[in-house]
Design a binder for these strands. Sequence first.
RNA 1: CGCGAGGUAGAGCAGCCUGGUAGCUCGUCGGGCCCAUAACCCGGAGGCCGGAGGUUCAAAUCCUCCCCUCGCAA
Length: 312
Amino acid sequence: MTKPRIVFFGTPEFACTVLQALLDEGHQVVAAVSQPDKPVGRKHQIVSTPVHALAEENGIPVLQPEKLRAEADTILAYDPELVVTCAYGQIVPESILKYPRLGCVNIHPSLLPKYRGGAPIHHAILNGDDRTGVCLMEMVKKMDAGRVFACHEVEIGEDMTGEELDLKLKEESIRIIREELPRYIAGELEGIEQDEEKVVFAPNISREMEQVHFQDEDVNTAYNHIRALIDWPISYGVLEDRRFKFYKARKEIREHDHAPGTVLGFENGAMNIAAKGGIIKIYELQPEGKKRMSADQFANGAGRGLTGKVFE
RNA sequence: CGCGAGGUAGAGCAGCCUGGUAGCUCGUCGGGCCCAUAACCCGGAGGCCGGAGGUUCAAAUCCUCCCCUCGCAA
């Protein structure tokens, strides 16, 4: 039996894992669609999206329309029998959704209907969940709302960072492609409608959401906040009008009398910050305008003298 | 010309405004103390102060240009 002609839609690193898995499994990927390459960084250099780069390496034609709707015909010219998407970043118009004989499926890293949207991995940790997963699902007009064909659960460790969970979910995505996609293609998977009552949205992390507010967040919330955003997009605290990014942290639950946000000092390689109901211990940070460094290095230099100051 | 911070010993920083023997914490090396130590005490090594010009009797410090790093914004 010949493999169906697949057009893949995806943009970031996570989608690359899925694309690579398709290739490793011998699927016939006839084209890749990704968001347009954009200028990035201080020098405004154009950087390829990860999917663009990977597709190019494998000699797969890449399409990067600004507006997908306008280029639908170009994509359909590749005559896909199946569309696979993962973190593409644009709404896929109906003209494409209804074209492939085998339909359009999406790989989504959450336990739908929980965490529809662009940042399901981050939100799972932000909410302190102990499990999440990866779904193979039907694409419909409404974002992440289609029937779920298969779902693999993944445990979230107590101290797991967004980076670590991302890695685990990538591995599970590979299994989904390896084990579930062939069954889908063979028509063996039923598909279960999502319970609309239980929908939870996971919007992209906005600039404002990156800041940790020690005044408003208790120790658990702050800790989940910090570890969820490691190591992208990274959370930060504000102290004396300067931003400090938090790259590595732990929490300690214990009662104390210090005002939330107070820098209690440096101890055993950590900068201790008071929070409601406990202590946030920062082991690695990046002061604004400086390079990323350990709490020890920070304590040896500019960190001294910050004891007693209070994070916003 | 987007805005801003910074480049001083292996690391992190102070000194610069108000020119005049380059200092602190850590690390490192040696010694001491101790049952012992990542603790403590004593001592040493390690710097063309990012680069090039300029001002000056004298420049880490003041002026000009360049290079590099980082934060914000996009």
